[in-house]
Each structure stands twice: as C-alpha cells, then as structure tokens.
Amino acid sequence: MSAEPAAPGPAGAGLAGVRPEPGVAKPDPILVVDGVARYFGGLRAVDVDHLEVQRGTITSLIGPNGAGKSTFFNLVTGFDKPNQGRWTFEGQQLAGVPAYRIARRGMVRTFQLTKTLGRLTTIENVKLGATGQRGEHFLPAIFRPSWAHQEREIEARADELLERFNLAHMRNEFAGTMSGGQRKLLEMARALMVHPRLLMLDEPMAGVNPALTQSLLGHITALRDDGMTIILVEHDMDVVMGVSDWVACFAEGRLIAEGTPRDIRANKAVIDAYLGSSRALPEETAPVDPAQPDEVEDTP
C-alpha cells in the first residue's frame, strides 16, 4: 500500500484545495470538534481548538505515544467526559450525550485492546451489534414470536458480514478462541452491524500479521468507497500514508498539523514531534515507521 499515491484519491476529492493547516475548515464536515480539552490532574491530555473531519474520507490520527489520540477517541465517543468543549456529529451536539446514544446515532468505535465477548459465540457477538432489536426489551423478549422474524433478518446480515470478513468458519465458536487478528476483524464486523456513518478504529492493525493487515486495509477502503467516513488511529506509517485521504497529527494533546499524507510527510512540526527538531524523515520512497507502537498491545 505504500506504493499508493499519497494525494487524496477520488473519495478525498472534496478535500482538494483545503489548506494543510491545523483546524482548517472542510467543505462537508461530518464531525466538528470545538475546544475539547481533557486534563488528568495537571496533565493536559487533550486540548483541541478546532478539528473538522470530512465526510466520506479516511482520516488518520497520528502522533507519538501519549499524544492524546486514544483519549480524543474516548472523548468524542462519550467514553470519557472532557473538562470543556463541544462537538457535533452531523450537526447534532454530542457534549454530554452518553456513549451508547452516540453509537446509536451512527458514530461507532472499536478499541485498541480488542473487546471481544469471549463467552459468546462469534455469531452472537455480531448479532449483538444490531440496533433497534425488539427482543432486547424485557417483556417482548419472553415471547419469541415477537422478535423471531427480526432475529432472522439480523442473523442473515450477521452471516453476510462474517462471510465478508472471512470469519464464517468461526461462526459457532466462542469468540474467546480467536486469534488477535481475528478479534480485530470481529470487532469491525460487529461495529458495522450498528450501521455506522462514522467508524472510528483505534489501532486496527496493532498485533495483526502483515497478510491480515492487507485484508483489513482492503475492508477499510471498501467501506470508505461505500460512503462511510472512517477515522483511524494508527502507528504504522506505511498504513497511514497509503490509506489515508487526510492526516491529523497530535502531539502533547494538541493538534499540530493537518493535511494530505504528502503534506504531512513534509511537515516540519510533525517531524519535530516524532524525532526531535534536529532530524528529518527519510524520503518518500522509503517511509519508515518512526513510532514503535510500544503501548500495551493485543498480541495473538
């Protein structure tokens, strides 16, 4: 994927002409973040003045360890509360909205450390993701006929997703028996059951073998081509530069740079953040992986 053109592809065409500077306005933003800040004691974990995410693109968040990428994810998806700030998703205010409602509105996340439901089977894991299930209400749950029909539809859709993510052979196994890579796939399939319009993937490639990385990337670009917006936290620069339409770089909780992968590669602030101010990134032909993902990882 490193051979892909770094300029925005057709899906990122809406970004043509957007200037590569932090906080720049996009023509059609799906997510707009304003002044969101989170402090842990005296530590400023996240402090983003303004960030817009263009609809229908793959936007990557990069930055050294501890830059606040995952905290930012937690904040905008409602899993953590910011000390201040507002953000809108498709024009709706999300500050103070509980995480489960944010997910139902179509902004669904996965986790850096996969959260498979080990003692549920693979198919149950995926079926769980469907929203608006009548059988999830206490009284209708007792009467199977009231939800059996919907359950069949959900199961058909879940089976389709398992097929698409090459997990069909695991259908009736406990998800706890899966390898790390399969868990990443399962999490993505499960998230898609929610019908997200914005999918937020927290290090989807961490601990995944290279062959599976390719297939995951294929899935991600296919989703973008279907019109979904994707935000990605990723450490692997090959992946980021190859797949992203837009890249936002965090350092010490702040958004320090934004732009196309080509812009970011040449951006001095990014190079400084990663390597210190006296070094330079190698040339475009040999992208390296400067940030070793040494955070706790989910290995198979």
Partner: peptide
C-alpha cells in the same frame, strides 16, 4: 432472547456493549 444476549455481553465486557449502542 436478544435481551439475554445483551446481559451476557455486559458480563463479558461492559464497554464493548456500550460501544454497540
């Protein structure tokens, strides 16, 4: 039922259940 499926999901991992709405 799907209701029980959510209960078991909560038992396994609350955050995962929450992330699925």
């Amino acid at each position: 039922s799907p209701w029980g499926r959510v209960l078991r999901a909560v038992r396994e991992d609350e955050l995962a259940a929450r992330s699925l709405g």
